[in-house]
Write a protein that binds this DNA or RNA. Structure first.
Lengths: 342, 342
DNA sequence: TTGAAAGCGCTAACAT
DNA sequence: ATGTTAGCGCTTTCAA
């Protein structure tokens, strides 16, 4: 049999209650001598409190459930989510909480949350935005169950969410190009329904307008987020009479195609044209030349989400709907005229 | 207050014992009528058994702990691990088990496993090979605690592990090129300490030897697994008098550099030279031309690991040390002479 | 076919 | 400063 709290109490010549207090650090009314005796007994018996009994007695598992997409290929197609997950794990772990994961999508998520809530299996939820639904939103709002949605849901709601600020990222991207002396800035983006791309475009527009050099409409090309489309749009862009001298690509896929097209057209990066994009995926720095990116610290977003959730678990009356603003500019050869591509 | 088993029992006019039997499907001695009454009460009261009480009473949490690297950047640098994780999640979830995750490395893992074992918090462990250590191995072997290591540990041990078969993958790669009519096959790989690369090389050697066309030593180039090195090695390879007509790159990074170098040297893929690599990363199919790869179904490896672990949790006397053999050839333009690169 | 009763190992209210 | 005691909600043994 495993060592229990009674064994420790006996060995230390005290009661289970006292042992419980010591191992939970509620020592404000315990003599130092007793504390030492208990600690020694714990060590000598190699006592580890039974987690199941604890969860049961304190009516809390100190566990958080992460709901998101864990389907086949997800890790390759959406490393973002796993990076946020990693950030959340770090803070939860540090605070003595456990992190459970479960595959969920917009249709399955309701039953899962219902079950997790009713069975009191977890103290809170972290839900990836790709897995939220309106019924879920209603349920969470009604029950006030602690939760944080990772990413802004694509409908109005009272849920608590945290997202990175793509508008800010676009702003930073355009600001960097202006600083480097580029003046004819173009944007290659995803379709209008692509909210990330649209937000980045908004930010670019903002920054250029603020610098009294508004983004010209013929310099905005939108299409599917594939290298092929990126290539096609770049070709269109640079077939125009008045060429741009810099291109902001809304994402890595578009950037890949764009760079390829520019190369084929005999344009040198960054001498003839600057190229930059968002998110520091391996593509970005493995390309020649390595691309300047505005990186979004999604790991940090996970940390913040975890921290927020823990606060909500502590005092249940908090509501948060916020953007975290942790975009970092990483300057590489593709936008830096002094350097040359390797 | 939440609905308890007593409430259901009362509503159904029976005892908690009977309700427990029904919800756990131990119905071999219960009248159909009683079962129906209980089921109805469960539904009407929207009863969900308290997971904490269950774990406590049955002395099992039906939870598995995954230990691996969740540090910053891990999702981008090692999507593999998350893909295996996803596979494991799917099978565990289906069998009514929960999956917890925790960041671990070779030094921290011992304390974590000790704690998880002693506190009886989980029923089993899935440990990524990057986080195993000799002391851990000794501890698991001594306690017979159910575990599966994902990937073959780099030291001899009695631990249970599952890995993909990289030797087989190399064999398949070489076999494909032979079939396509390529005869002068070269290999660009990671350093000798890179076990994945080495195994793939072994497989290539095997297949070519079996076809009585042994891999020529001057066609084997090894170096750091970076695009730069891949590029350098490709240049060396194709500066030789007797050029190869096909190159197998041990991984995507090397392939990226290799393709770039070939392009610069004016060689057309696949007309002048075939290129293939391993693992179906987005790089592989976003490049021009898209690369033929031998893909390793790591998701499936996670499924198999999860399944194996559940068996071990069931009957504790099983030991497994095995390769899963789920390599799939994905033929694309880079090795197919009939097609042309776009 | 069903039910009573005894835990599972800890926490926390209350008493001293 | 410490101990007594009563749960936490379920499962399971044993009896009927």
């Amino acid at each position: 049999m495993a060592v229990t709290i009674r064994d420790v109490a006996q060995a230390a010549g005290t009661s289970p209650t006292t042992v419980s207090r010591v191992i939970n650090n509620q020592c404000y009314s315990i003599s130092q001598e007793t504390i030492d005796r208990v600690r020694r007994a714990v060590r000598e018996l190699n006592y580890h409190p039974n987690a199941r009994a604890r969860s049961f007695a304190r009516q809390s598992t100190r566990t958080v459930l992460w709901l998101g997409s864990f389907c086949q290929g997800a890790a390759f197609e959406n490393p973002h989510m796993f990076e946020i997950l990693s950030g959340a794990e770090s803070i939860l772990s540090r605070k003595g909480y456990r992190l459970m994961v479960q595959n969920a999508d917009t249709t399955s998520v309701n039953a899962m949350v219902e079950e997790a809530y009713a069975s009191q299996e977890v103290d809170g939820l972290l839900i990836h935005a790709s897995a939220v639904s309106r019924p879920l939103s209603a349920m969470l709002t009604r029950t006030h169950f602690p939760h944080v949605v990772l990413g802004k849901p694509d409908f109005e709601s009272q849920m608590c969410w945290i997202d990175v600020n793509n508008v800010l990222s676009g702003d930073i991207a355009a600001g960097h190009l202006l600083e480097e002396g580029y003046r004819r800035i173009a944007f290659i983006g995803g379709k209008e329904s692509d909210r990330i791309s649209s937000h980045r475009l908004d930010g670019v527009r903002q920054a250029l307008a603020a610098a009294s050099r508004p983004l010209e409409e013929q310099f905005i090309w939108l299409g599917e987020s594939t290298p092929q489309e990126g290539s096609r749009m770049a070709q269109g862009l640079f077939a125009m009479a008045d060429r741009p001298d810099a291109v902001i690509c809304a994402n890595n896929s578009l950037a890949l195609g764009c760079v390829e097209a520019l190369e084929k057209m005999g344009l040198r990066i960054p001498r003839d044209v600057a190229v930059m994009t968002f998110d520091n995926y391996p593509y970005a720095y493995m390309m020649t030349p390595p691309l300047t990116v505005v990186d979004i610290d999604v790991y940090d977003m996970g940390v913040q989400a975890g921290r927020t959730l823990l606060q909500m678990i502590g005092k249940k009356n908090q509501q948060v709907q916020t953007y975290t603003t942790t975009s970092n500019l990483i300057v590489r050869a593709s936008t830096h005229r002094e350097r040359r591509s390797t």
